Amino acid sequence: MRTVDFHCDALSKMWEDPKASFVDDRHLDVTLQRMEEGDLALQVFAVFLSEKYGRPSFERVLAQIDTYRNRIVKPGHLKPLLWQEQVQEMRESYHSRFGVLSLEGVDGLEGNLHYVKLCYDLGVRFMGITWNYANWAADGALEQRNGGFTERGRQLVELCNSTGIILDVSHLSQAGFWELTELTQRPILASHSNAYSVCKHPRNLSDEQIRALIALDGMIGITFVPWFIRSDADRVKPEDILPHIEKICELGGEKHMMFGSDFDGIDQWVAGLEHPGKYPDFQELLLKHYPESMVKGWMSDYALRFLEQNLPLAPSKEK
Rank of each mutant, 00 (worst) to 15 (best):
M1N: 13
E59S: 15
M294V: 15
L172F: 02
S50T: 15
D240Q: 08
E143K: 03
L81V: 09
E284D: 15
L307V: 06
I166G: 02
W15I: 07
T150C: 00
L109K: 10
H77W: 13
S12N: 14
I129M: 13
K79V: 13
P291A: 07
L273K: 04
T163C: 06
V116Q: 04
D264P: 03
I220K: 01
G265M: 05
Q43M: 13
I248N: 04
N146T: 00
R125F: 05
G38Y: 09
K288P: 03
D139L: 00
K74G: 04
S12W: 11
Q84G: 10
V44T: 15
L118A: 14
V100H: 01
S231F: 07
H289G: 00
G272L: 03
I222L: 15
D168H: 02
G153H: 03
E246H: 13
Y279C: 04
F259V: 09
Y196V: 02
V225Y: 08
G128V: 06
L28G: 10
E104T: 06
I229W: 04
I245Y: 06
D139E: 12
N132P: 04
L189P: 01
R305D: 15
E110F: 06
L189M: 14
E318L: 14
F45P: 09
A63P: 04
Y94F: 12
Y279G: 03
V169H: 00
L159Y: 11
S193V: 01
V106N: 03
L213E: 01
S50L: 12
L142Q: 12
L251W: 02
A138Y: 00
S96L: 14
C160L: 09
A215G: 09
T150I: 00
T150K: 00
M258V: 13
